[in-house]
Amino acid sequence: MLSAILWALIGGTIIGLLGKWVAPGDRDNIPLWLTIVCGIGGILIGNFLYTIFFKADTNGIDWWRHVWQVAVAAVLVMVAAGATGRSKT
């Protein structure tokens, strides 16, 4: 259980930061904790959507699954940036 939470935080951080990097426009105005939450959401929702449209069991690293996760995280980062409305000033 603890290892699953740890991997969710590590994966959420990586996917969230990649999603923030891929998101169009200026998305640096959301805090790190919200980026991690968007990354965890990207992992969960991206996996769900990927398994709906594609074969879920592959051998080795499934790079397309990660592309879907980053894309969903980028959308979540854009939504979070719009919803929080933090300004840089």
Rank of each mutant, 00 (worst) to 15 (best):
55 K>N: 13
8 A>E: 02
62 D>F: 14
43 I>G: 07
29 N>W: 00
61 I>R: 08
70 V>T: 11
62 D>P: 09
77 V>W: 01
28 D>F: 04
48 F>P: 00
27 R>F: 01
38 C>F: 00
83 A>P: 02
4 A>P: 06
33 W>A: 06
66 H>E: 05
39 G>I: 03
53 F>P: 04
71 A>V: 15
62 D>H: 14
69 Q>I: 08
62 D>S: 12
44 L>N: 00
82 G>P: 02
7 W>E: 04
62 D>A: 14
55 K>G: 09
45 I>K: 01
79 V>C: 10
14 I>A: 08
60 G>P: 09
63 W>P: 03
74 A>Q: 06
31 P>S: 10
32 L>V: 10
61 I>Q: 02
19 G>Q: 06
69 Q>E: 15
17 L>W: 14
79 V>Q: 08
33 W>S: 06
3 S>V: 11
72 V>R: 02
72 V>I: 14
82 G>M: 10
46 G>Q: 07
22 V>F: 07
22 V>C: 09
51 T>E: 00
79 V>D: 02
81 A>I: 00
65 R>T: 06
45 I>M: 08
46 G>A: 10
10 I>W: 07
75 V>I: 14
50 Y>I: 12
5 I>A: 14
12 G>L: 04
60 G>W: 03
24 P>K: 14
2 L>I: 05
25 G>T: 03
6 L>S: 00
24 P>S: 11
26 D>H: 13
24 P>A: 11
12 G>V: 04
79 V>K: 06
17 L>V: 12
37 V>S: 08
60 G>L: 02
82 G>T: 08
4 A>F: 14
84 T>V: 10
74 A>T: 03
32 L>C: 02
30 I>T: 07
28 D>Q: 10
30 I>H: 00
36 I>C: 03
12 G>C: 07
62 D>K: 07
79 V>L: 13
23 A>Y: 00
55 K>L: 09
20 K>L: 14
39 G>D: 03
50 Y>D: 11
8 A>M: 07
58 T>A: 13
12 G>R: 03
13 T>N: 05
42 G>P: 04
50 Y>T: 11
39 G>T: 03
74 A>L: 03
26 D>S: 11
61 I>A: 12
36 I>D: 02
89 T>W: 11
8 A>D: 03
23 A>E: 09
60 G>R: 04
26 D>V: 09
26 D>E: 10
40 I>T: 08
1 M>Q: 10
76 L>H: 04
78 M>T: 14
39 G>Q: 03
72 V>M: 09
18 L>I: 10
76 L>Y: 00
85 G>E: 07
5 I>K: 05
3 S>F: 02
64 W>P: 10
28 D>R: 13
84 T>Q: 12
60 G>Q: 06
74 A>D: 02
8 A>Q: 04
65 R>Q: 12
73 A>E: 01
41 G>W: 09
52 I>L: 13
